[in-house]
C-alpha cells in the first residue's frame, strides 16, 4: 500500500531530509516511525500525502504512482488517507461537529450523509456529548480525538498520526493509542510518528527507526495485550 524505492528528499535549502530510503508498508499494518528530531519523519509523511515531491526515487501510495501523478489527482490520493496533525489543526470558530463534518463537506458529501456519519464517528471517539462545543472548550486529549475523528470520517484506508502524543499527558496518549489500535483491528493501516519510545514499548507493532534521513532499524515488536 506504501512503496518507497531509493527515495531521497533534498529541500531547496540544501538540507537532505531523506537519503535513499527503501521500504514497503502493507495493508493492515500497525507501524511506528521513530527517530530523533530532524531525522526526516515529517518529511516521510509529507511525501506520502504529496505535500512534498521526492528529489529522486519511486513512491507509490494506495495505488497512486507519485512520480508522475497528475496535479488534479492529488486530492483523490489524499482522500485515501486520514491525517492527524501534531497540532490538531482544528478550526476554533466552529463546533466540534462542524470540524469533523468539514472534512466531508470539503469533498462534496451531501449534508444528510454528513450528519449520520459524523454522529457515528463522534460516538466512536467518545465525544457525542461535546459535539456542540468549540475546540477551545475541550481538553488537549479531547481536541486530539476530534482531530482523529476528522481523519477517520471519510473512512480512509490509511491513518497517519504525526506525534499523536506530543502535547498531552501520558494517560491521554494511552487513550488515543487504544483508539488507533481499535481502528487498526478493523483493517485500517495505521502509521504513527513519534519520539516516545514508551509508547512503542507498550503497544508494539512494526517499528521503523529513522536517523539522519536513513532507515537504521525495521523490526516487529510483539507485545502481550
Amino acid at each position: 500500500m506504501i512503496h518507497f524505492k531509493n527515495v531521497s528528499k533534498v529541500y531547496p535549502t540544501g538540507s537532505k531530509a531523506l537519503d535513499d530510503v527503501t521500504l514497503d508498508i502493507s495493508k493492515g499494518e500497525f507501524v511506528f516511525i521513530v527517530g530523533p528530531s530532524g531525522a526526516g519523519k515529517s518529511t516521510f509523511l509529507k511525501l506520502i500525502m504529496r505535500e512534498e515531491e521526492a528529489t529522486s526515487g519511486e513512491i507509490s501510495v494506495n495505488g497512486y504512482n507519485l512520480v508522475n501523478i497528475k496535479k488534479r489527482k492529488i486530492p483523490y490520493l489524499r482522500r485515501t488517507m486520514g491525517i492527524v496533525f501534531q497540532d490538531f489543526r482544528l478550526i476554533d470558530k466552529i463546533s466540534v461537529f462542524d470540524n469533523v463534518a468539514f472534512a466531508m463537506r470539503a469533498i462534496g458529501v451531501s449534508e444528510k450523509s454528513v450528519r449520520k456519519r459524523v454522529e457515528y464517528i463522534l460516538a466512536l471517539v467518545g465525544l457525542s456529548e461535546k459535539s456542540a462545543r468549540k475546540p477551545s472548550e475541550l481538553s488537549g486529549g479531547e481536541q486530539q480525538r476530534v482531530s482523529l475523528a476528522r481523519a477517520l470520517v471519510n473512512n480512509p484506508e490509511l491513518i497517519i498520526a504525526d506525534e499523536p502524543t506530543g502535547n498531552i499527558d501520558p494517560e491521554l496518549s494511552y487513550e488515543i493509542m487504544e483508539l488507533l489500535v481499535e481502528i487498526n483491528k478493523r483493517g485500517t493501516t495505521v502509521i504513527i510518528v513519534t519520539h516516545e519510545h514508551n509508547l512503542v514499548n507498550e503497544f508494539g507493532g512494526r517499528i521503523i527507526k529513522i536517523n539522519n534521513g536513513k532507515i537504521v532499524g525495521d523490526y516487529i515488536r510483539e507485545v502481550e495485550q
Binding site: 486530492p75 482522500r79 486520514g82 468539514f102 470539503a106 469533498i107
Partner: peptide, 17 residues
Amino acid sequence: RFEISIMKSVGATNAFV
C-alpha cells in the same frame, strides 16, 4: 488559510476550494 490547508489535506479539489 488555515481552513484552506485543512481542506487540501483532506482531499478537497482546487475547484472546490
